[in-house]
Amino acid sequence: MADGVAIGAAPLVETTGLGVRRGGHWLIHDIDLTVARGEIVTVIGPNGGGKTTLVKALLGIITPDAGRVHHASGLRAGYVPQRIEINRVLPLNVERLMTVTFKAPRADVEAALAETGVAELIDQPVQTLSGGEFQRVMLARALLRRPDLLVLDEPVQGVDYAGEAALYDLISDIRSRRDVGVLMVSHDLHVVMRATDRVICLNAHVCCTGAPQTVTRDAEYQRLFGPKAATAYAVYEHHHDHHHDVHGNVVGADGGHHHHHHPQDGAGAGEPRR
């Protein structure tokens, strides 16, 4: 894309020391993260771990209270938010939903929908779509803006299990075909792994990060998701550099960079009010 961000340049998006504070405690803190063109980065973590907060800070929907978010110049992001509920009283078809903030000729809308396999839905009222159809429409909507970066918050929610794998494959295809960067949020551990280059495990701070097979062997990952989660990938031993005591405080850190603590060990660190 002539007017997009150059290939092989600096990361599409980069955060340094990013933190968001609400009601006196940090929903997320000390987040260093980059997404480059052509890679799929998946943020996983428990509910209330700050995944959606991170996405919103990254997109400029909320202003960070610490650190910085740096976008490559001219970056165009395509965003699929978590759970949109459109009032049944609002008469809205798919084409209108897709063009409400971005004017595009019908042929372009149709082409974007074809890319996600739902071209026939263009005139459907949005309230009649199934969960899987709606997510594909929202993905097409993001593609319509010819993005450099796709930000997908729980892209498979409301999709049945078979549809989930197909949707992840589609996202992976889009990444290759369009050479975009993808930042994805998921609470799902298994299916998402096969379409991911890098996993970031988030529980207010970045607990662990790396290739999927690395992260699933991480002690911190297993502590968050239970030992069974390790079977998502196997073979890799990684020495974790800190432990958490019962209050979630980090003890025995030898790396020196884990000066943070877990606010309430996940459960209490609520999502920001919408």
Binding site: K56, L59, G60, I61, A77, Y79, P81, I84, I86, N87, L90, L92, L97, V100, T101, F102, R274
Partner: peptide, 19 residues
């Protein structure tokens, strides 16, 4: 009209898209 419609569909999405 248009920005208001975008906000009605989803406020976060609209804001991310520059409304």
């Amino acid at each position: 009209w248009r920005p208001m419609l975008a906000l009605t569909i989803d406020a976060d999405l609209a804001q991310a898209e520059g409304v």
